Every structure is written in structure tokens, then in C-alpha cells.
Amino acid sequence: MPTPAPTGPLVTRGTLTADLRTLGVRPGETLLLHSSLSSLGWVCGGAVAAVQGLLDVLGPEGTLTVPTHTASNSDPAEWSRPPVPEAWWPEIRASMPAYEPALTPTSGMGVIPETVRRWPGALRSAHPQTSFAAVGPLAAEITDGHALDCALGECSPLARLEARHARVLLLGATFASCTSFHLAEYRIPSPRAETGRAVLTPEGRRWETVTDVDLDIAGFEELGADFSRDGQVVRGRVGAADALLFPLADAVAYAEDWLGRRRA
């Protein structure tokens, strides 16, 4: 069978830059990106060109931040897609490689975040499951001090981004991917749960269990639809992708009220 021809549209670094500017991304701003490369169309240069286009728009004074989560570094008892035999659990806990910011690849976040993680000058936060990577002058401020018992709360990069008046760009991604909503879960009464993961300590690799907010994306799509209707959300297209751009602080405040009422 012949390889099917690409369906397009043809997207380049230059067209991405132009589309992002038209959407309203500004030079010098701080941006949290959630993305789907495949949604953009046929990108000449792939994820590298996509990141170059984003950095071109932000310029040398802007900072690009992406989630570089590693959900696979977790207790196998919690795995469901797919599950693994219970008989394997002890060996997985004993053998899972410890999280190392410079080494551990991103999982489940897409190819653009992994490309940003490996970008020259990129910095990555220390949380073994919900890290973020950033490129730009605020990268250290955003990624430093990510507490190991605070996945997406006040001691995470999300709170630093909020304080820096960052905006969120959903690029071919849905509100189910909007990590900013999770910051609101820390500001309302939320259940807590234990989670396990492999970490690297001065004494070497070990398996640890910590207690943190039990994060839950249930309702995020409905929440996002309501926020899109009521909030300051800019809608547009970048390549073939639907794009949404909005202030992170607005999303967190709206989610705090919305989730607070529905989860009470």
C-alpha cells in the first residue's frame, strides 16, 4: 500500500508565528502551553518548528512554560490503561527508575512539551510526577521550589505563573488538559489521597509514599465551556488547530467558584 499523502494544511515556523500574533500572543509575556502537534496540520520541521514559532512570538523577554508530567512514575496499583498483574507490583515499586529532571522523559503530554524540556537553556521543576519545564528569563523563578508534596498547588509552578500574570494557550487541546483548574482544587475543600513514586535522594534511589490533594478532572470540560462563555477567552485558529488564550488567574478564580459550588 502506498503511503498516503499529507492532508495539510502546510504549517511552517513563519505561519505559526503569524497565526499566534493574530491570536494575540504578545512579545515578552509569560505563557503556559497545552498543545497537540497533530492538530496543527502538516508542520514543516515538526515539534522543533512549533517551539521555534512560539519562541519567535514571545521574543527574548518572554517565557514559555509547558507541563512535563511523568504519570508513569506512580504506584502500579493505580494503573488502569492498561493495568498490570498484581504479582508485578512489588518488583515495579523496587525497580522503577527515579525521577531525574534532566533525564526522565515526559509521558502523556505530547511531543511539544518533550521538545521544550530538551531545549537549550530549559529548566525543569523537581516534582517527580507533575513537573513543568520553562524557557526564558523567568524559567528559574517558575520552576524552582516545586514542593514534592504539592503536585499542582501553592508550592508549584502554577502559583508562580499566576503571580506573574501568565496566560494559558490551549493549542489543539481541550479544557480537560487545563492544569490551571487543578490549582483551584487546592483552594477548596478537596479529598486527599496517598500516591507512590520513585525518587532520587542524597542516599540514592528509593520508593516513597506521600499524601496530597486527590486531583480530579471530572467536570473540567463543562467548567471550561462555562468559563469560555463568561470569561475573557480569545478564540482563534493556529494552523488547523482551534486555539484558546486566556489569563491563568481568571481561570483559577472561575474554577474555584465553579468547583466549590458543585463539589460541595
Rank of each mutant, 00 (worst) to 15 (best):
Gly8Thr: 11
Val233Asn: 02
Asp214Leu: 14
Pro97Tyr: 06
Ala176Leu: 14
Trp258Leu: 10
Arg93Asn: 05
Leu16Asn: 04
Gly196Asn: 10
Ala151Pro: 08
Arg261Gln: 03
Arg262Ala: 06
Ala87Tyr: 03
Ala166Ser: 11
Ala151Thr: 09
Met96Thr: 15
Arg124Gln: 04
Asp75Thr: 15
Gly239Tyr: 02
Ser39Ile: 05
Trp207Ile: 11
Thr143Lys: 07
Ile188Arg: 10
His69Glu: 03
Leu169Gln: 04
Leu58His: 02
Ser95His: 10
Val252Thr: 10
Gly62Thr: 10
Arg13Ser: 01
Leu54Lys: 05
Leu248Asp: 02
Arg93Met: 06
Ser72Asp: 15
Gly153Ile: 11
Gly224Ile: 13
Leu248Phe: 05
Leu223Cys: 12
Glu78Phe: 04
Gly231Leu: 09
Ile112Ser: 03
Ala139Cys: 06
Arg262Cys: 05
Gly145Leu: 07
Leu171Asp: 02
Leu54Thr: 05
Gly121Pro: 05
Pro27Thr: 08
Glu114Lys: 02
Ser38Gln: 12
Val210Ala: 14
Ala198Tyr: 05
Pro247Val: 03
Leu58Trp: 01
Asp56Gly: 01
Arg192Thr: 14
Ser95Lys: 15
His127Ala: 04
Trp89Gln: 15
Trp79Asn: 11
Glu203Tyr: 08
Gln52Trp: 00
Met109Ala: 01
Ser35Met: 01
Leu158Tyr: 03
Pro247Thr: 07
Pro189Ala: 08
Ser190Leu: 07
Arg81Ser: 10
Gly110Leu: 02
Pro82Phe: 06
Gly172Thr: 12
Leu138His: 15
Val51Pro: 00
Arg205Glu: 12
Leu161Phe: 08
Leu171Pro: 03
Phe181Pro: 01
Val116Phe: 00
Pro67His: 02
Val43His: 11
Pro191Lys: 15
Arg26Leu: 08
Ala173His: 08
Arg205Ala: 09
Phe227Ser: 10
Ala49Val: 08
Ser156Tyr: 05
Gly46His: 07
Thr65Asn: 01
Pro76Ser: 15
Arg93Trp: 02
Val25Gly: 02
Ala126Ile: 08
Val57Leu: 03
Gly196Glu: 05
Ala240Thr: 07
Ala122Cys: 06
His34Ser: 08
His182Ile: 05
Glu154Asn: 15
Pro4His: 13
Trp88Phe: 09
Gly46Thr: 06
Arg167Glu: 04
Glu221Ser: 14
Leu200Cys: 11
Ala176Gly: 14
Ile217Tyr: 11
His146Leu: 03
Gly231Asp: 11
Trp119Val: 05
Leu103Ile: 11
Pro189Ile: 04
Ala47Pro: 00
Ala218His: 14
Glu162Gln: 14
Ala253Phe: 03
Asp257Asn: 12
Ala176Pro: 00
Ile217Gln: 15
Ile112Thr: 03
Val168Asn: 03
Leu259Cys: 06
Gly45Arg: 14
Gly24Asn: 09
Thr209Glu: 10
Ser80Arg: 11
Gly108Tyr: 04
Glu86Ile: 13
Glu185Cys: 05
Glu208Ser: 04
Ala140Asn: 07
